[in-house]
Design a protein around this nucleic acid. Structure first.
Lengths: 217, 217
DNA sequence: CGGGGGCTTGAGGCCACTCAACGATAGTGG
DNA sequence: CCACTATCGTTGAGTGGCCTCAAGCCCCCG
């Protein structure tokens, strides 16, 4: 029943869920925390509107964003009793919340539910595995190319996409500095691989997917 | 029933499993491939003897090792129908194999089985999340310190541990070069934090866990 | 005893980082 | 309505941490 919820247009399935578990909705202003590392993990979340970053910090403030959660994505799954991440709203965001408790309850009777949880956890794991390759072995330009392809795939609608996150967020996702991210994006622009829409540097059109994919080895 | 199999001393539980699914054992010589990326994922594996590396490659040969699987570890879980990485025996290795098919069959009747698969997949995910922080944000010295603490935790028995993997493997796990790994390990030696046993640089005693943990922020 | 693999160590180079300045935009309060 | 400020992004100059290239040692194994 939760299966496919991570795909944007499967929100319909959510209706079926509501008859069985407690689903609530909650709004989070730009920049506010949804949950913190080491807090008890009482809920599972789905993005209805907006975007979320989840990250870990080192003691001196260095930050690694593990994933961006966009509309339709389910997150808060990989956690045990306690969250392993901090999650924050990147922009004004609405989330659907499901109590873990009630999910457990259903899961005991309905094997399909656990199976769906397993499927979603697997896809989180696969994303993490791909990201390890990026962080460990790709150059700055390759990282940015991979990132843009991911965002193009996940949020392009009318031939372009609008990034909800800042250059700093992108940098902390890619293991770079914000200056490097800026430089590499502009190098792709100079090569004619992408274009900016209007004055806003967050709206991007990918002109040449193939060359972008070749940079992303 | 599979729960806890990832912990070294839970091999006992494996006996209970054998009555229900087809479990076979297989040996792999040092350096041989267990499965390749994009091959069909027909089995789930558990290390009985030896050690395994699983990795991804870029087209030009750059390699990122995502995890080392040691005695007791279960792997091959995060995969869908097709493997997402290559697995190789680091040393001569014996594995227990369970057909995915028969696992699926049991899982349909026994919700506990899926639950255990979910738990193990989660712990793989958490390892990957920690590793993203390492690859994205830690310095060379911090990476090596984190690695040594992990190995100390996972394979110390008589006050020391013997690394099954080469410097090159460690480097590809930590996103460094083998030369850098060598230099950083020796810096820890020079600081009196660790010692080598006999002539073999793979047998290590950690003398000062606390200082090692402080380097690993 | 010759050859190869694994590890160490040194010298030099480069890619991404640091530090800094600047422009543009949005939100705020007088 | 307009400073004022904060945030965000870009761009340049210089630095440094890790990589590259290279040589040499040790051990194992044929």
């Amino acid at each position: 029943m939760f299966a496919g919820l991570s795909r944007p247009n499967s929100l319909t399935k959510f209706a079926a869920l509501q008859a069985r578990v407690t689903v609530s909705e909650h709004s989070y202003g730009k920049g506010t925390e949804i949950f913190g590392e080491d807090e008890p993990a009482d809920y599972v979340y789905q993005v209805a509107v907006g975007a979320v970053r989840s990250y870990k910090l080192l003691t001196d403030g260095r930050r690694q964003i593990g994933a961006f959660h966009l509309v339709g994505d389910v997150f808060g799954l990989g956690n045990a009793a306690v969250h392993r991440f901090t999650a924050e709203a990147i922009v004004d965001t609405k989330l659907h919340l499901v109590r873990r408790e009630s999910l457990e309850l259903i899961a005991q009777k309905n094997a399909v539910v656990i199976r769906d949880l397993l499927t979603m956890t697997r896809s989180n794991l696969q994303h993490a595995e791909d990201h390890m390759l990026l962080l460990g072995r790709k150059t700055a330009l390759e990282r940015v190319a991979t990132f843009l392809l991911e965002m193009d795939r996940r949020l392009t609608t009318a031939g372009f996409f609008a990034l909800p996150m800042s250059r700093r967020d992108i940098a902390d996702y890619l293991g770079l500095t914000l200056e490097t991210v800026s430089r590499e994006i502009h190098q792709l622009y100079d090569r004619g691989i992408l274009e900016f829409l209007s004055e806003n540097q967050r709206q991007i059109v990918v002109l040449d997917h193939e060359r972008l994919a070749n940079l992303d080895l």
